[in-house]
Nucleic acid binder design. Structure first.
Lengths: 344, 344
DNA sequence: AAATTTTACGCAAACGGTTGCGTAAAATGG
DNA sequence: CCATTTTACGCAACCGTTTGCGTAAAATTT
């Protein structure tokens, strides 16, 4: 059983018959304390193994040196990479990171925000739930002077701080590449209509087709609920067309995995009979034999660490007394198509 | 700009011309406070939007309701699953989780421990670095009454609290299964000698062979540094034998992925010419066409959440004044071979 | 030697809330 | 009507550290 009593400043003060304030100042080598006293204090402090109780200091400072990160799901490599990005940035600033997984559940997200408020984190980083469409729970953090920065899955609002990823650049690279190697009939397997990401992909797809002077054909645009059976149905529908696409942009890697299986089942060969480009979430293609021509990378790590930097800027700015009101911190990172076609 | 001043108990007290202690008691509906006063306090509290500053309470309680988790690498699905297990358990107990990635670096691990001590976490969960062989940095937490529970990668000591995974059960299932379907020449591709896991696998492999009355042949035991080229070299060495094994136990899934590629490159067919069983770390086999016959699952989530339960037991026990000195909390979970042979 | 400055330290409040103890005033008992 | 209990609240300490201000004693100046 350990002593249970950690040495405090008062303890040192008592032993030396001086006041706690003298000890505190001596420990910081404050000039107003005599040299001998300072040395005696240091000596006793060392003997007792004294260490300042940071929680007491933090409490006085009204800070916790902790930030919260709210993400949908750690089992997604995208988000675990994002968390790592945050942790790296936080470590560099001597901050701690507490996590909360919303599991794409709005109520959980609210609860996590509440909890982080209770713990008085110095700031919050969020990647939203798919369900989230109202933001009062984040607005309420303003009352506690807790800044919020969103990343990747960000609210559809102007008055927020965020880092997001622009899918246009990657999609443009993808379609340009496909056109470059001779494809002119490029399909799209999109996600469920209710997801913002779905609409976004459709818009960008159309734009990029146009930029490449390709016609748009509704027949080669299909969607899936993201369920496995539905993914297969979607790709089969395209393959069954009279004139099937020769290349397909796929909603994400999970969908693509099912598509590849279906293509093989149909006796076709990936990258010969049909080519794919998808939106990256899985770091697995280097191990697979059938791979997409490329993946549109959204740089989870880069997004999250930049969001963390923004957050620290806001936190530090708030600490300065004459803070000149920071402008909104917003940044959009370009996605990039990672080319796999040369790899195999 | 928000008001910067959150309402406090003192603020309420001032408005009602009562003392802070009365307000505090009224807010908790303490019987010694008159009904009218209590109601007036509640009313003003509501008007002001008063919420207790938990940090102040925690500081007084000398608790933080936060536990720390130290794991090697979040990008490994095993550890992100483990973290999720911890978070689930923590949420159920109203605790927060702060994370630290050691990146398999001993110095980082020490630094993280130090940091968590500074933040006075109520307890720590650890899965050790591959480099860690001394444990003073954890012992030092005793001084602060911070309990520690290890999981999965645990110290080689008796006097610790831990949850670990027993590989024997899974390996035995694996070899028994292989024997059952006619294999009698079962190889082993092991990891680098310096890893504890390597020695462990070798021992268990030998034991399980013996239990199935199979002879041991040094020729079909090879090792790899875990680098891709070396993985390929290892499997090629086995395939080049006069009498190659018909089944191989592989160190882990990463190694196996390279092995499968090498087998295909050699013109052989997985699960026909040669079969594999590996130690699971990747949740990818459901998407692959060539899969091992089975994977030995070590239940990251179960291990970590049980470790968290242990930790909470220790924390709660320490809070009780007449704590009857908890015994060491130790548990070993059986690994299990997950059978994929029927799936394809 | 008296006046002034400097040195070296203590007091007390502050952060926000909790709690043991003391005590007026009101209610009850005899 | 006096003695005792109950009711309802305030005081002050506490958690551990920091910091503005005040002040004796010592050192310096004249």
């Amino acid at each position: 059983m350990s002593n249970n009593k950690l040495p405090t400043i008062k303890e040192i003060a008592k032993r030396l018959n001086v006041s706690a304030s003298t000890v505190s100042r001596a420990l910081h080598d404050h000039p107003s304390i005599g040299l001998v006293t300072t040395m005696r204090v240091h000596k006793v402090a060392k003997e007792l193994g004294y260490e300042a109780n940071k929680m007491a200091i933090y409490f006085k400072e009204r800070k916790t040196y902790t930030i919260g990160v709210i993400i949908p799901d750690l089992s997604e490599p995208f988000f675990s990479a994002a968390l790592t990005g945050v942790e790296d940035a936080a470590e560099a600033s001597n901050y701690n990171v507490i996590i909360g997984q919303s599991l794409d559940n709005f109520e959980r997200e609210k609860k996590i925000v509440e909890n982080m408020k209770d713990h008085r984190v110095d700031g919050v980083l969020v990647s939203l739930t798919k369900e989230t469409s109202t933001y009062e729970h984040f607005d309420s953090l303003k009352k506690y002077n807790i800044p919020v920065v969103f990343f990747d899955r960000v609210p559809n609002r102007k008055d927020i701080n965020y880092v997001a990823c622009n899918l246009v650049s990657g999609m443009l690279q993808a379609i340009t590449k496909l056109v470059g190697i001779g494809h002119s009939r490029i399909g799209l397997i999109n996600g469920p209509a209710k997801l913002a990401a779905t609409l976004q992909r459709l818009e960008i797809y159309c734009r990029c087709l146009k930029e490449n002077n390709l016609p748009m054909d509704q027949d080669i645009i299909v969607s899936t609920t993201l369920a496995k059976a539905d993914n297969v149905k979607a790709i089969d529908k395209l393959l069954a067309l009279e004139e099937p696409p020769t290349a397909i942009i796929v909603f994400n890697d999970y969908v693509l995995l099912d598509c590849i299986a279906a293509v093989k089942a149909a006796g076709l060969v990936v990258n010969k009979d049909i080519s794919f480009i998808s939106f990256a979430n899985l770091p697995i293609w280097e191990y697979m034999e059938s791979v997409p021509l490329g993946s549109i990378e959204q740089f989870a790590n880069k997004q999250s660490s930049m969001a963390a930097e923004f957050l620290f800027q806001m936190i530090n700015n708030a600490n300065k007394p004459n803070s000149p009101e920071l402008p909104l911190l917003q940044h959009i990172i370009d996605s990039e198509m990672i080319d796999y076609s040369s790899a195999k």
